[in-house]
Write a protein that binds this DNA or RNA. Structure first.
Lengths: 201, 201
DNA sequence: CGAGTGATTGACTTAGATCAATGACCGTGG
DNA sequence: CCACGGTCATTGATCTAAGTCAATCACTCG
């Protein structure tokens, strides 16, 4: 869950937390962009109002993720940020962070590193979504997530959450795992799934 | 299609092109990471071999996109890059680019800007993939892509390509558009779709 | 002028969403 | 210490929307 590890400790330490009730607004489209945030707890929804007067969710930002990075390069926020559930964010004043990025190329480089990793990860997830079949989607996920050493995948959080991240209903995931297990393609342990037939190093 | 607009002109100009036949290998997992690339024409597939001896496509990089950005922070490439069709890439030596990033905070900032935009875009696309119904997926896409001024969406390339990007079969997209049109939710012109009922500014 | 490709529509099939019910587990408050 | 409410995990039954196969038409290009 890092994701802001690239910031100097002094800035990290100085960032104030802010608590939000469910439904509370963090900022609105058009507000002066004064800070970026990191979600410590809960979920924030980035929402935009469309030309035909509907609401569109641009993204849902979860625990550990950064939000409003684009505020760096904009005078104002370009969408609303609203807490989907009771949440806590940490506030990083834009000016302070920007100064650090400008003055210290090491900080900038670390940030770039973090961003490129994110881009890769997101592209991979998008690619996975192109796989229609639940079965293939799940096995590809497991293959890419498997530890090279022992072919096992550690499951963070609940299977239900995982299903959501993979774009499957939780029932579909349960069923698929059950099927794969019964064919001995995988073995399941507590918090861990092992790819049978993985070549160990 | 820009995406490397953040690099100094001198570097852009110095980058050599390289042509690849369909199926040709640009680099292999484990090769020393000596350059990053931009796809000028065609499509490059990033492929990894999994622990259980299968092939997994990590991502498909299309025209205008950058590839192997992560090579900046790694001694070696961590997957294979293979041309899916005859392609042309431009080669940016890692050392040169890295030097520019380190020495010029303006360059670094521009790169960061480009990356944050990419991250936002990818997250939005992922969010869209969570919408199961073709109809909703298409309308959300149109709403978010619509020009604020006149509520119209310019269609780049073919509808077939668009269907692929949205994760729909082309038939499903055609049908959905036909349905939306017959209900007067949208109007179609050459290369352009207009959201009826969009509030014009 | 034919080959190749996109756009479009029809018919059919199926995989996955949805609705439902049950058991296991956990924390908690009386 | 135990009963109760809540959530996850699991499995069954059902339904439907989207994928797949297929045929046609319109265009473009050499």
């Amino acid at each position: 869950m890092p994701n802001l590890d690239w910031l100097p400790r002094t800035i990290l330490a100085a960032a104030k937390p802010r608590d939000l009730r469910s439904g509370e607004v963090l900022f609105r489209q058009g507000d002066a962009a004064s800070a970026i945030f990191r979600v410590e707890e809960g979920r924030i929804r980035m929402v935009r109002y469309t030309v035909d007067d509907h609401v569109a969710v641009l993204q849902t930002v979860g625990k550990g993720e950064m939000l409003a990075e684009a505020a760096f390069f904009s005078k104002t926020y370009h969408c609303d940020a609203i807490a989907a559930v009771a949440s806590r964010v940490r506030v990083y004043p834009k000016a302070v962070v920007l100064r650090a990025l400008k003055s210290d190329s090491g900080v900038a480089l670390s940030f770039i590193s973090s961003l490129t990793r994110q881009v890769q990860d997101l592209r991979t997830r998008l690619e996975q979504r192109n796989i229609r079949s639940a079965r293939e989607r799940v096995t590809q996920f497991l293959r890419l997530s498997a530890d090279t050493r022992d072919g096992s995948v550690h499951i963070h959080g609940t299977l239900k959450e995982l299903a959501g991240e993979m774009g499957l209903s939780h029932e579909a995931l349960y069923r698929t795992l059950a099927a794969l297990e019964s064919e001995h393609t995988i073995a399941r342990k507590k918090d861990r799934i092992v790819l049978v037939g993985a070549k160990f190093v």
